[in-house]
Every structure is written in C-alpha cells, then in structure tokens.
Nucleic acid binder design. Sequence first.
DNA 1: CCTGAAAACAGACCCCC
DNA 2: GGGGGTCTGTTTTCAGG
Lengths: 153, 153
Amino acid sequence: MVAQLDELDRKILGVLQEDASQSLDEIARAVGSSKTPVWNRIKRMRETGVILRQTALLDAEALGLEACFFVLIRTSEHEADWQRRFLEVLRARPEVLEAHRLAGDIDYILKVRVKNARAYDTFYQALISEVRIYNVTALLSMEEIKSTTVLPV
Amino acid sequence: MVAQLDELDRKILGVLQEDASQSLDEIARAVGSSKTPVWNRIKRMRETGVILRQTALLDAEALGLEACFFVLIRTSEHEADWQRRFLEVLRARPEVLEAHRLAGDIDYILKVRVKNARAYDTFYQALISEVRIYNVTALLSMEEIKSTTVLPV
DNA sequence: CCTGAAAACAGACCCCC
DNA sequence: GGGGGTCTGTTTTCAGG
C-alpha cells in the first residue's frame, strides 16, 4: 500500500501541495526537470492513488462558519450494526469534517464546523436523537493556530 | 469578514471543492452559466480570500504516514511569551497538521500525522523539550471514518 | 453583469535520444 | 526514463449589448 516514490516524485508532490494551479512548465522548473517526466509522474501518482484529488481550499470564516468544535464521544454500544449506523450519520452530515475511531477510553473524535454555538447544539441534538451515545464532550476552538493539508513528503 | 456570495458563487465553490481540476467550460455547464461570469467570480473570490488556494490532496497511507494522533494539551503557563514560543514550535513542525487553542479545561488540541508510534514519541519528546507543558493526552486514531476539506457552502 | 470572439497559453501526446 | 516539438483545447482578455 505504500507507494514507491523517488526524490523527483516527492519534490513534485511538495510543489503540488503548495499550489496545484501552477503550469507543468512552472512545476518542471521548480523541481529541476522538464514537462514530460513531470507529466508522466503526476499521471502515475494519480492512477496509483497517491494524489487523491485536486481541490480549492476555502476560508471557513469568510463563509460564515465561525465555530469549530472537537467532539469526544464515548459509547456503550459496540455492535457492528450500531457502528454502521453511526458512520452513515457522520458521513451524511456536511458539518462533520473529520471523524476518527480511537483506541482507548474515548471511542470517537469528530471535528465539526458550524456557524455558531447554536448551530452546534442543533447538530448535537440531531446526532444524539439518531444514534445512542453514552457520553459527549465538546471542545470549542477559540483560535485556529495552524491548519494545513500539506503532508510532509 | 463574511463575504457576500450569491447562489451562483456558492454553486461554483461547491464544484471547485469537489474537483478543482475541471475546465471553466465544465464548471460553467455544471452551474448553469457560461465561461466569463464563472471566470470573473472565481477571480473575485480569490482576490477577496474566500478561495484561499488550490491544492493536491494526497493519501497519507500511501506516503507511509500511517499513524494519526490527536493530542490534548494542558499547560500551566499562560504568558504571551510562552504562547508565542509554543506557536512557533507547532508551525515549524510539518507533522502537526492542525493546532487549535481551546476554551475550557484543555488548552490546546493538535492533530499529528506520523509514520508510526515511534515517530510520534520522537515528536512528543521534542515538543516537551522545547516548551514547558503541564499535561498531555494522546488519542490514537484506529480508523479515519471521514476526512474532508469540503465546507458546506 | 453577461455574451461571444480573439489572442495568448498550457496540456496531452508524439518521436527521438 | 528524459528532451523537445506540435497539435489541440483551455484560459484570459476585450469589445459590445
């Protein structure tokens, strides 16, 4: 599952992560190569799934999504059926930007982006009405110190 | 700070978030408009900062970054000086993908992507040697249920 | 603010090295 | 597997409604 990438592949990924709108010529210059090899490598990395997709990153505040919560969830239910239903609910809700199943005491963590605290409460009420949850702790973000999609390559 | 966007702007943002590699013609068709208005609106949304940047999203697993931790941090230090130093350290470390200052009991939450548990420990040892921290809880992700950069527009 | 065309530019694919 | 050229399509600009 781990892709075999050489130094040039990694340089290309670094450049694409910083700014995917650059032309092939610009990328080639930045990594010290030329169009064709860069084009072939990007094509291959798309096909093998190293590059998942290309997206525009938006400013959540500018869109009026001014509140961000991390939600710690404990559950008493561990059957496959409950879990499948919980996953469906999370995937269906666009305000849930991340959801992880955890090891240990806390079972799940969510990252939720909403307009304000009231909108979070609406989300929370909907969630607990849709699936049975034992314990929830919401951590309110006061300040986004860092937020990046750039992985160290 | 909240941008004024009409229905067409929001449709364009939706399409760009799903796939920013599409041509103007494709985007225009998808939102029921034509090239020039779409181009003008994208340009304006870039300039006003609604669209932050365009990026390639990579598969962390394919890059060998197979471990993800959420790190809950309590500190006894609340001076501006300590905080500035802490921020610098987090911004300088590429394995820290997110960092938020929180309201309440827990002061900070980090999302950290690394190769394995050993690499997390290396990061942790480096962090506590660089800044004074009172209490740290690491939550290990077993499964990424959902992960999206798509904001509800 | 949109339409449509024109000019500048970049991407996709070739053959040759 | 890389270099360079060429054809095709896309981006960007602009005049006109």
